[in-house]
Design a protein around this nucleic acid. Structure first.
Length: 297
DNA sequence: AGCCAGGCTAAAT
DNA sequence: ATTTAGCATGGC
């Protein structure tokens, strides 16, 4: 099969940490490469120093989609300079200096985070993988060496991959179809979101044109989408850098790192988060999240 | 066995 | 205006 090699020069970039940081759920390390899918492109990525090597398993016209997804032209140093100069932030950045935010497709991001509530990241990955296998389109040609007995790997150890299922595809499902992907009580929320979007009642492209507050309110009209999930989508898919998703890890981080003496209410923590971290608060959030998750182990 | 997991919603203070 | 069960499922 024809493949395309893409080389991207980067600086201040930690590809592995970024793909494994809980903002995306479909990338896995296989033999020194990260395997994943961006849109309809099946990709293998690896970083050597300041170069990211990408192999697209089918021909691509331009590397633009990949540079956009990876945000390789974002000046990370400039963003880090806007962070508050305090001890917790310095420690969080020092723990992973090349951690980045990606720029995801809004629907994939929204759907994935609807599935994320009270799930561990490993389980979110499993649910999303099942959803894509069942309802996505194959993005790699199943080869003659494909072993149907396990349905996943061919002779070279490669993994069959699928696009993320479209809203229309999921809108045509019923709740039981989705529950079969182990998503439990999240199934009706995902189904509703798919139908709202497929039916044009929510326009994910139009949300780009709104300001942060309006975009957030629009996403939160969806059942199963509260402030945290809306902020994840605004940050990871639309690039609203001021969005600061507050989950259990971040709540713990703020409490332990910034209010170690007294117990702070959830409201106080949210207010602190919204005012303390500056115009790229979302990046700061990602550093704190990564710091808390890695220092625990 | 029981608790908790990148939450949200509706009900109860 | 805040706090608290219930919600599926799986890993430990």
């Amino acid at each position: 099969m024809a493949a395309t090699e893409i080389l991207l020069r980067v600086r201040d970039y930690d590809l592995a940490a970024t793909l494994d940081s809980g903002q995306v759920f479909r990338w896995q390390p296989v033999d020194n490469y990260w395997h994943g899918v961006v849109g309809q492109h099946s990709l293998q990525l690896k970083q050597k120093g300041n170069v990211i090597h990408a192999t697209a398993l089918a021909p691509v016209k331009s590397s633009q989609f990949l540079r956009h997804f990876l945000q390789t032209e974002t000046d990370l140093a400039a963003i880090l300079r806007t962070f508050p100069d305090d001890e917790p932030m310095r420690r969080a950045v020092a723990a992973c200096p090349g951690l980045r935010l990606l720029r995801q497709d809004p629907w994939e991001c929204l759907a994935s985070f609807i599935l994320s509530s009270t799930k561990q990241i490993v389980q979110i990955r499993q649910i999303v993988a099942l959803l894509c296998e069942r309802f996505g389109e194959p993005v790699t040609q199943p080869s003659a060496t494909l072993c149907p007995s396990n349905g996943e790997r061919d002779g070279a150890g490669d993994v069959r991959r699928f696009s993320f299922p479209s809203p229309e595809k999921l809108a045509a499902c019923n709740e039981a179809d989705l529950r079969a992907c182990k998503m439990g009580f999240r199934a009706p929320s995902l189904l509703n979101a798919a139908r709202q979007i497929a039916g044009g009642r929510i326009d994910l492209e139009q949300i780009r044109t709104l300001d942060y507050a309006a975009a957030r309110a629009e996403l939160m009209t969806l059942r199963g989408v509260g402030g945290k999930i809306a902020d994840c989508v605004l940050l990871f898919a639309y690039g609203f850098d001021s969005a600061f998703p507050v989950d259990v890890w971040i709540e713990r981080a703020l409490q332990e790192l910034y209010f170690p003496r007294r117990r702070a209410s959830a409201k106080r923590l949210r207010h602190f988060a919204a005012t303390h971290f500056g115009p790229h608060a979302g990046y700061a959030q990602q550093y704190l999240f990564h710091y808390m998750r890695t220092k625990a182990k």
